[in-house]
Write a protein that binds this DNA or RNA. Structure first.
Length: 343
DNA sequence: TAGCCTCAATGCACCGCCTG
DNA sequence: CAGGCGGTGCATTGAGGCTA
């Protein structure tokens, strides 16, 4: 983007526009919520009862006497698969394998990460299938990756032995596990350039692009999103502007209906940084943070009010459409960092 | 100052769900 | 069945601090 294309918009106009949008979306949200609340009264009641029994987890940041950025990592223990409530198993998901219906007991179905035991037993079943059907390694691999052998029943046959998982999730697991293009580690500059070239040529046809790169379609899509998708050229790593920060807060307000910023936030910022406060930059990397960066971030923390439970799933994709200089993950990290420090 | 430790930043792997 | 999307989990990296 050339400098002459830059459009300077007065900050007040941006604010007015944003506030209109927030009010509109907030009203819409509240009326939707009201109508849904009565409809799902019994569900909400169950959730409330459940919450009372949840242990209170003391945040790492609360235990520290000196304030520093603590972005705690959860203990690296295997996540236990959870039982799926009966109503969540939709007919549509099982429509292509109706013959399994009799074998599925919805109360025993699980979701979440596959355990090591589950993975091992699934891969053993795949090997058994291979032996029974007299398939070479290459033939099996070809079917998994290219679907060339016409073993259309393979997924049904295998999932018959895994009654606690849907065919869909077993299918995805096997294809990932046996796809030789999966798990190739970090991308280099050349691969990244090739990816962008392919995007220009084929668009978001991940399967097609996968033919030209040594990565799975899922890997390719993840990478493209992570570098900022169509805004990758404008992505500012590390540095944030106050304007980007405020836009993020306002968007979360718009989505959740919860006012994140204090009413007089702009006066506070103006008082400290002057009229041009929205262009002030700071960085979050606390090891590289200068005194200035810390001061700005401390001030920003003081003008937000974050609820213990925002109540909605934040649509990062929608928000990243508003903030072209940040990727979806950049926004998520900023939000979680604020949450980790203030709750 | 070498070697080890800690932890935020980065970014890849994965899962559930929807749709054609 | 297969492709694609939204969202989350967590492994790796490397800068900076600590200590012998």
């Amino acid at each position: 983007m050339s400098v002459k294309n830059l459009q300077i918009i007065p900050y007040n106009l941006i604010k007015i526009k944003m506030m209109k949008k927030i009010t509109k979306q907030s009203d819409k949200f509240n009326s939707q919520l009201k109508s849904q609340e009565s409809e799902y009264d019994d569900i909400f009641q169950d959730q409330k009862t459940e919450q009372q029994h949840q242990p209170v987890i003391q945040k790492e940041s609360q235990r520290k006497t000196n304030i520093r950025i603590v972005f705690t990592r959860k203990p690296t223990q295997q996540q236990q698969p959870q039982t799926i409530p009966q109503q969540r198993i939709s007919v549509a998901k099982r429509s292509w394998h109706k013959e399994l219906d009799n074998l599925i007991n919805p109360s025993e179905m699980k979701n979440g990460k596959f355990s090591q035991e589950e993975r091992e037993s699934i891969m053993q079943i795949v090997r058994d299938y291979q032996v029974q059907n007299n398939l070479t390694d290459q033939q099996l691999k070809d079917y998994i990756e290219l679907k060339t052998l016409g073993h259309s029943k393979i997924w049904l046959e295998i999932t018959k032995f895994i009654p606690t998982r849907t065919v869909d999730s077993v299918y995805k697991l096997i294809r990932r596990s046996l796809d030789s293009k999966n798990r190739h580690g970090y991308w280099n500059k050349e691969e990244e350039a090739e990816l962008l070239k392919c995007i220009q040529q084929y668009g978001r046809k991940w399967r097609e692009i996968s033919k030209h790169l040594n990565r799975t379609p899922d890997n390719i899509r993840n990478k493209y999103i992570q570098i900022g998708e169509h805004n990758h050229l404008f992505r500012n790593k590390s540095f944030w502007t106050i304007e980007e920060f405020l836009t993020l807060m306002n968007n979360i307000h718009a989505l959740s209906g919860y006012p994140i910023l204090l009413p007089n936030y702009d006066q506070i910022l103006q008082q400290r940084f002057g009229e041009d406060f929205q262009n002030v930059k700071f960085r979050l990397n606390y090891r590289k943070m200068q005194a200035d960066d810390k001061e700005i971030f401390e001030l920003l923390k003081s003008i937000v009010n974050i609820p213990s439970n925002i109540g909605v799933t934040i649509k990062w994709t929608e928000i990243s459409a508003e903030i072209k200089t940040k990727a979806k993950d950049d926004l998520r990290q900023m939000w979680y960092k604020l949450n980790g420090m203030l709750l």
